[in-house]
Simulated assay, not measured.
Amino acid sequence: MADRTRTPTDDRATGDRVARTLGTLERERATGLLRVGDDGAFHLDRGAVTRAESRHAPGPGDLIGALGGPDPELPALLALFDAAYFLLGSRAEPVFTGGPPAHGPVRRITAATLDHERRRRRTLLDSAWPYDDADTAAVVPVRRVRRQRVILTGLQAEILLNADGRRTPAELARDLGRTAFACLLAVRGLAAAALLRTRPHDPAPASPVTPAAPPPAQLPPREAGPPTEWAPADHDLLARLRAALAELG
């Protein structure tokens, strides 16, 4: 089957292009590979996503050492959702090539499930620290802590102990056997606590009322949810995934 490049007719939100392409391929029950530029790819089997790889995220083998639980499927699931977060946010052009399904045990995941989790993660990151430059910069701890008392999560302490001023959050994630998203969230929290060197940011405009941050599971109000014609999100799977992320964090 020839390559087919998918783009939505309304490209107001370039970051949603990959998600909408997945939704289209899901309705067509397509089987093959959806490449997202040089960032990575989704494997599809009759419209469902079965695997995902991203150059920004660790693979299942990198996560096995950090998971002490009895669930053998968990590393693959965590790696898939980790990769999907970066792929769905990519601005690269998605290109689908039909072909045989991936070999080995697979979990069939809908586009809505991946998109729902991607939006939730983006909300969490923005609530922790609203600037994304810390996501790709080398992690450099400050030399002096201005606070007298600092409370860190286990992962934040691990990141500070291993930061060498050269590795990015994604590189630290691979070396520590953690998910890239968990490291991003931890790094943004460290940046908000002024424990990392970050570039200067313009202060937010003064306002008589400071709006409260949205709850972690709530979608950002500026974004609509997945289109209604998509297959529904698997909320049981999402709950299981979030419990695993909380345990790892």
Rank of each mutant, 00 (worst) to 15 (best):
R4P: 03
P8E: 02
P8T: 08
T9Q: 12
A13I: 14
T14W: 13
R17F: 08
V18K: 03
T24G: 11
E26K: 01
E26I: 00
R29G: 09
R29E: 14
G32I: 01
G32K: 00
L33H: 10
L33I: 13
R35S: 15
G37I: 04
G40T: 00
R46H: 12
R46Q: 12
R46F: 02
G47C: 00
G47V: 00
V49A: 00
T50W: 06
R55L: 07
I64N: 06
L67G: 06
G69C: 12
P70F: 15
P70M: 10
A76K: 01
A76M: 05
L78C: 10
F81Y: 04
F86K: 04
F86Y: 11
E93A: 11
E93F: 03
P101Y: 07
P105W: 00
T110N: 02
A112K: 00
A112V: 03
E117K: 02
R120V: 10
R121Y: 06
T123Y: 07
L125M: 14
D135E: 11
V139F: 03
V140M: 09
R143F: 14
R149G: 10
V150E: 06
I151Y: 13
T153S: 11
T153C: 08
L155T: 05
E158H: 13
E158C: 10
L160A: 07
A163Y: 08
D164L: 06
R166K: 14
P169S: 03
L172G: 03
T179K: 01
C183A: 09
L184K: 07
L184A: 13
V187R: 03
V187D: 02
A194E: 15
L195D: 00
T198C: 05
D202C: 07
D202H: 13
P203R: 10
A206N: 11
S207H: 12
S207C: 11
V209Q: 12
P211E: 04
P216H: 09
A217L: 12
A224V: 07
G225R: 07
P227S: 05
E229L: 05
D236W: 09
R242P: 03
A243I: 10
E247W: 14
L248F: 06
